[in-house]
Amino acid sequence: MGDTDPNDPIAVALELERLRGTLEAGFARVDGSLALLVQRSDQTDKQLADHEKRLDSLERSRWPLASVGVLAALTTAAVAVVELSSR
């Protein structure tokens, strides 16, 4: 708009309309980016909740293994004592 009068109301209105379009496009792009970030955050939250649930189930099922190990060791020791005492 180099050869038009900057005080011309029509030129000002056209320039304002052009700026409005540019701002709308920019806001749409930012809105899309924010929606993508929210979606990724929701997916991350779901994965974190799933991992927490799986970890809790592993922790619950882990304690019997130690008890079984101790019982097996005690049984082995008892069998060894019985065999040694029978000789």
Score class of each variant (00 low, 15 high):
4 T>D: 15
5 D>L: 06
5 D>W: 00
5 D>M: 04
6 P>I: 01
6 P>Y: 02
7 N>P: 00
7 N>I: 01
8 D>T: 06
8 D>V: 06
10 I>Y: 07
10 I>H: 05
12 V>H: 01
14 L>D: 15
17 E>T: 04
19 L>F: 03
20 R>C: 09
20 R>Y: 04
20 R>P: 04
21 G>R: 03
21 G>W: 01
21 G>E: 10
22 T>C: 00
22 T>L: 04
24 E>Y: 02
25 A>Q: 10
25 A>V: 06
25 A>I: 03
25 A>W: 03
26 G>I: 00
26 G>M: 01
27 F>R: 07
29 R>Y: 02
30 V>A: 15
30 V>W: 00
31 D>Y: 00
32 G>M: 09
33 S>D: 13
34 L>P: 13
35 A>W: 02
35 A>S: 12
35 A>Y: 05
36 L>H: 10
36 L>F: 01
36 L>A: 14
37 L>V: 12
39 Q>P: 00
39 Q>L: 04
40 R>S: 08
41 S>P: 07
41 S>F: 14
43 Q>R: 14
43 Q>V: 09
46 K>F: 09
46 K>M: 11
47 Q>I: 04
47 Q>D: 14
49 A>D: 11
49 A>K: 06
50 D>A: 15
50 D>F: 05
51 H>P: 03
52 E>T: 10
52 E>Q: 12
54 R>C: 04
55 L>A: 13
60 R>L: 12
62 R>Y: 11
63 W>R: 15
66 A>R: 02
66 A>S: 03
67 S>T: 05
67 S>I: 05
67 S>C: 04
68 V>N: 01
68 V>Y: 05
69 G>V: 06
69 G>Y: 01
70 V>C: 08
70 V>D: 11
71 L>P: 10
73 A>T: 09
74 L>F: 11
76 T>Y: 10
77 A>N: 12
78 A>K: 03
80 A>R: 05
80 A>E: 08
81 V>W: 14
81 V>M: 15
82 V>E: 13
82 V>G: 10
84 L>V: 11
84 L>T: 13
84 L>H: 15
86 S>I: 04
87 R>F: 08
87 R>M: 08
